[in-house]
Design a protein around this nucleic acid. Sequence first.
DNA 1: CGCCGATCTAGAACAAGTTGCAGAGTTGAT
DNA 2: ATCAACTCTGCAACTTGTTCTAGATCGGCG
Lengths: 215, 215
Amino acid sequence: MPADAHRTKAAPDAGRAEPASPLTERQEARRRRILQACARLASRGGFDAVQMREVAESSQVALGTLYRYFPSKIHLLVATMQDQLEHLHATLRKKPPAGETAAERVAGTLMRAFRALQRDPLLADAMMRALTFADRGVSAEVEQVFRRTTAIILDATDLADPTPEQLSAVRVIGHTWHSTLITWLSGRASIEQVGEDIDTVCRLIDLTVPPPGRD
Amino acid sequence: MPADAHRTKAAPDAGRAEPASPLTERQEARRRRILQACARLASRGGFDAVQMREVAESSQVALGTLYRYFPSKIHLLVATMQDQLEHLHATLRKKPPAGETAAERVAGTLMRAFRALQRDPLLADAMMRALTFADRGVSAEVEQVFRRTTAIILDATDLADPTPEQLSAVRVIGHTWHSTLITWLSGRASIEQVGEDIDTVCRLIDLTVPPPGRD
DNA sequence: CGCCGATCTAGAACAAGTTGCAGAGTTGAT
DNA sequence: ATCAACTCTGCAACTTGTTCTAGATCGGCG
């Protein structure tokens, strides 16, 4: 029932996305076509180019069906982001970043993600704008994206059992990551400044993780 | 010429707002009425309740005139934010925050601002959403808001001549401030979490400002 | 097979941001 | 006072996100 596909509400397995309700093969295919069309359109013209009628036509689905799968343009773009983030996370898991300190690894990870986004700035723009524009009605989906981001950062720290302070630091890094990215996408900050700010905020992690065996 | 009132482009005095082009008294009054109506509507129903037709009617101005003063809803809301920020900044200048370290003072300042926003969450929501949703066409205006935010934080640090690292830390604090605020406004973080993250990020400032007389 | 409920399609309809336009009002210079 | 230029008004039109409706399809079940 795609009507519920986006309501990953009471599902206890909020990490994975699929097995909430059994989509048929055709439905799964539709969903993929839609996400793909969305990404393609965003890639071209950014947020404004993702027009629901276009997405529908482009993925060979009726407008009403599109809305059944994704109840708003924001939902659609947030889902697209979730999708992309999963790819990124999988890639990063295979090649974890090197670095002595946690700060270096986190900064390295984020800079790698940043370079990936630079290759498709308009898509990045569309997704980030949707993410920050989302209101309470999209909270659940946005929350998933944030959780994924947090997980990516936490993976890079290589911490087994983070303290509350460390979690707060990770959240702050996530905030900075999103906000600085927006600033860059809006043309108000240079690539260098983004790198600088990421480095700066990543020091927070080392504040809370004094390397036990440092000379 | 209100047609240019928002193009604070080549104006070298980007700090102050008024003297870009001489508005007549009636025009100044119109502008104020519009901003006031915008704030009032936002206060009630948030972003969605700020409808351009409503704003126009409510401020006794034709729709076309509204658009002449503020070329889009986003411009209007960002200008409203600028307006509110100026008030806040003036208030803070009169009663600067106490605190031994720069981190304490900055955190105190931001928490005070946060409490002010809590009194009008829907207005805050409308302004913040506009701010992060703004695209390149609003860059100049958004930039001013960021400058003002930065200035407020810098004031709290009490630094006379900040280094580049300190500026980066201030930017990161600003990023965290905006992003955590959005997260709270969307109902995805508690008030406590906001406070915690602000405290966390403010430590960055002390990292770059080692108090000269520490034991 | 024939039926039922859910899903999908095509398309109209509605809402709000934005634009365009003709005419009335204001302003400033002569 | 008069004229020209600019501004403001009222209103209609256009765009795009969203909703609604009537009918076509599909999938499972007796």
